[in-house]
Amino acid sequence: MSNLPLRAVKVDEGLILRSSGDVIDGVEIRRAKVIPDERGRLGEIMRADDPWFEKFGQVYFTTTYPGIVKAWHFHKKQTDHFYVPKGLIKVALYDERKESSTYGTVNQIYLGEHCPGLVRIPPGIQHGWMCVGNEEAYIINIVSEMYDYNSPDEYRTGPHDNHIPYDWERKDG
C-alpha cells in the first residue's frame, strides 16, 4: 500500500484538512460553536436548522484508547457526524464511490477538545480514526439512521492491510 501525499487545506476557522485532492464530495467540516463564560463552556454540536441536517436517527458515543485505530468502515444509507469533546483523534476518509468527482481522494482531519469541530461523512465514504492523544478519546456520533441490530448498515475493511492508500503510522519530522 502506498500513501498518497496529503497537502493542507483550510476548511474553517482553526480547522485544517489534509487531503490528497479536494475535500471529498459530500464531506462537510466546520468549527464547533463554543461559548465560554465565567461558569464554564457551552458547545453547540448540531442544530435542526444547520444546512447539513438531514434527519435524526440516534446519538451515541464511543471511546478509543491512545494509539488504537478504529477503521475502516462505510455505510450505504447512514450519514455520520463526528464530534470529539475529550481527547484527540485523527479522522481519515477515503472516497471509494466510483461515480464521485473525488473518487480515490483521501482526507484527514484532527478533532478534539482543543480543536472542536464537526465532520459530516455521507454514505459510501470509507472512514475511521486513531486516538493520537495521550488519553482516551470520546467520540460522539450523530447519525441519520437508527442502528438496525438485525441488518446493520455497516461494511468493514481491515485497518492496515487493504487497498486504501492511507497509513495510520505517526509521521515524525
Rank of each mutant, 00 (worst) to 15 (best):
S20V: 00
D22A: 13
D22I: 03
V23T: 04
D25A: 09
A32I: 09
R39N: 04
R39I: 04
L42P: 12
L42C: 08
R47Q: 08
R47I: 01
A48Y: 10
A48R: 05
A48K: 04
A48N: 05
D49W: 03
D49P: 00
P51W: 01
E54W: 01
Q58T: 06
Y60E: 06
F61Q: 03
V69L: 03
V69M: 10
A71D: 04
W72V: 05
H73N: 07
F74L: 13
H81L: 10
Y83S: 03
Y83H: 05
P85S: 13
K86H: 13
L88E: 14
L88Q: 14
I89H: 08
A92C: 15
L93C: 13
R97V: 02
E99L: 03
E99C: 00
Y103S: 01
Y103D: 01
Y103I: 06
G104P: 01
G104M: 01
V106I: 12
V106R: 03
Y110S: 13
E113L: 01
C115M: 13
L118F: 02
V119E: 11
V119N: 10
P123Y: 08
G124I: 00
I125V: 13
I125Y: 05
I125M: 08
H127K: 03
H127N: 11
H127C: 05
G128D: 00
M130S: 14
V132M: 07
G133A: 06
N134A: 14
N134Q: 14
I139S: 02
I139P: 02
I139T: 04
I140F: 12
E145G: 03
M146V: 00
Y147L: 14
Y147N: 12
N150S: 14
R156C: 07
R156H: 06
